[in-house]
Design a protein around this nucleic acid. Structure first.
Lengths: 334, 334
DNA sequence: AAACCTACTTGAGACGTTCCACCCATATTC
DNA sequence: GAATATGGGTGGAACGTCTCAAGTAGGTTT
């Protein structure tokens, strides 16, 4: 069996309390005593038991991270950002997948409470009142990440998706596009897409651009192909704004099948700057938002909450940026 | 403050022990008493404290998962597989990124011990003696995943990469290819690639096929483009086997730039069956190994270890399969 | 000389469970 | 009728740490 704090105390000829103080550096200990304790620790290769520590101190140095699905595009990058910062502040993360299902999400918040996590990082495709109630009940410090809370009830980190879509339309308008389509999941399913669509509609109207909405049943490559083909065949447009990169690539492929040249005949813009954008033909113009930073900022925010550091704003908005590639800008030919 | 088991006991007029037995269903309790307890639990909305439980029972229902980098291609899928199965057996996972660095890995194993995890799932690009020593010291049930231990000292889950590469060459040979190139990182950097290359070399020799090795500095799309171009321009081959899908797509693009038709002029095969394979043009033939299953099987293995279920073999080898797509098979045209 | 610091150190009660030893009826066996 | 099971329950030590009130020794002030 492994050594306990009590063993170390006996070995060093001091009390448990002193050992504890040496370990946690929580009060002054005479240099000589300290050395005796450290020697004893080394000799017994003592490591503190974090569970006992958690019980006694009521802080577990553990953060619950609830995501819809780690394996979804770039979610892993976000999680990596979270983990890195967590680590920096000596936290660990318990990762849970909810598939965006309300029951599961509520369940997980409860279980995380049972595990006595110090805080929660929460991601969900759509935030409802039930979520808020659950959070209320759990009484845990929570930061929302990439999850829109229109009423700003919970601390959150987001980007301004609506503005980003507006920027994209303005960008395309400046290139002379007079007719633009937006492709994404039907309204009401995903907050992200809804916001982007709203920006799209607002900006097309303001710029007097003919707009068209292409609804797809699921925001995946294969799920979108057919709907895109139908839409593009019946009413050709000058540009396509896709709710994410995967859809944008589907749009590229459909356009190419219809013998349209990109970007000469039709321009295509995606969202999220996933790895796909570089690997598509032509490379995809997209709205970049660093997923890593997303997670990192959210986690840093949470650590501030946990250590009562002063907070300037409870709804952090991250910057975005249009990354121009060849799907909207003709390639420079030597 | 939230209710404790003691509060519930008082409310129901029974002892703590009885409440515990109701919660854990660990012994018979009279129907009537049980009801009183359950009512009290509901009334006080009692939830057991997992930390206290962990201290008392010495089991935390938590698994440590150490990966080089969650955000690396498809690692997230693997983690998802782990999480799903963990969940099924009522475990949670603490996820840590090591970047494949030995010190960090050893550190993490130690911290996971402190956190009193019930077991460890470990992934690393290259296993060394120091790893084994660290595991030994930690005295934790450990399963290696996608991490080769040539001496089979630690329980592990893997696929037979060498055989997979042999299968690919045989497959191409059957299609009449007489000259095949292998593209991947230089020998000695990645165990995975080394194994695949070994299989490739063995099979090309056996089939009397002209083989060529294209070494790239990094196994990424952009990092490989130039080297592929140089290689394909100087010595045209009939087929390319890439160490992973990303490289295979780079190969596709380079071939297309050289006005080669795929698969008529050159066939291309990737490894891993990532999402990219479906989204490339033409869709990529690849060696499929479900990353999700990889994680799922490893986790299931660990649960068996943890509950002393009988184990048939300590080195699980997962099946692989060549998924034929249009990069090696001409499209059927209506 | 009494009172008061300061610098260290101790003792033991939490923290919220699990689980073992034990108790008390009532029923069953020899 | 004594011994033995069995169902249903109790009490409290143990798990390994933190933490706080309290203690000691030596010096300084009044």
């Amino acid at each position: 069996m492994s050594a306990t704090i009590y063993d170390v105390a006996r070995e060093a000829g001091v009390s448990m309390a002193t050992v504890s103080r040496v370990m946690n550096d929580t009060a002054v200990v005479k240099e000589e005593t300290k050395k005796r304790v450290l020697d004893a620790i080394a000799k017994l290769s003592y490591r503190p038991n974090a569970v006992a520590r958690g019980l006694a101190s009521k802080r577990t140095k553990t953060i619950g991270v609830i995501v819809p699905d780690v394996s979804a595009a770039f979610m892993a990058e976000l999680v990596r950002g979270i983990e890195d910062i967590a680590n920096m502040y000596h936290y660990h993360i318990i990762l849970c997948n909810s598939d965006g299902q309300l029951d599961r999400e509520r369940d997980l918040v409860g279980t995380m409470w049972e595990k006595q996590v110090d805080g929660l990082l929460f991601m969900s495709p759509k935030l409802r009142q039930e979520h808020i109630d659950t959070f209320e009940e759990a009484q845990l410090p929570i930061v929302l990440c990439r999850t829109d809370d229109p009423e700003k009830r919970i601390p959150s980190v987001n980007i301004n998706n609506k503005q980003a879509a507006i920027d994209v339309v303005d960008y395309l308008a400046a290139k002379g596009c007079k007719s633009i389509a937006f492709v994404g999941a039907k309204a009401g399913l995903k907050s992200l897409t809804d916001e982007r669509r709203a920006g799209f509609l607002q900006a097309t109207e303001r710029n007097a651009i003919t707009s068209q909405l292409i609804d797809v049943p699921s925001e995946t490559y294969s799920g979108a192909l057919k709907f895109l083909k139908d839409a593009l065949q019946t009413s050709p447009v000058r540009a396509i704004v896709a709710a994410n990169d995967e859809l944008a690539i589907a749009a590229e492929h459909v356009a190419q099948d219809l013998k349209l040249r990109i970007p000469e005949d039709v321009m295509i813009v995606g969202f999220d700057n996933t790895k796909l954008t570089e690997m598509s033909r032509p490379p995809l113009t997209t709205v970049a938002q660093s997923m890593y930073d997303y997670g990192a900022v959210a986690m840093r925010f949470l650590t501030k909450l946990l250590s009562d550091e002063p907070i300037s704003t409870y709804t952090v908005v991250l910057p975005h940026q249009i990354l121009e590639r060849e799907s909207t800008a003709p390639k420079f030919v030597k």
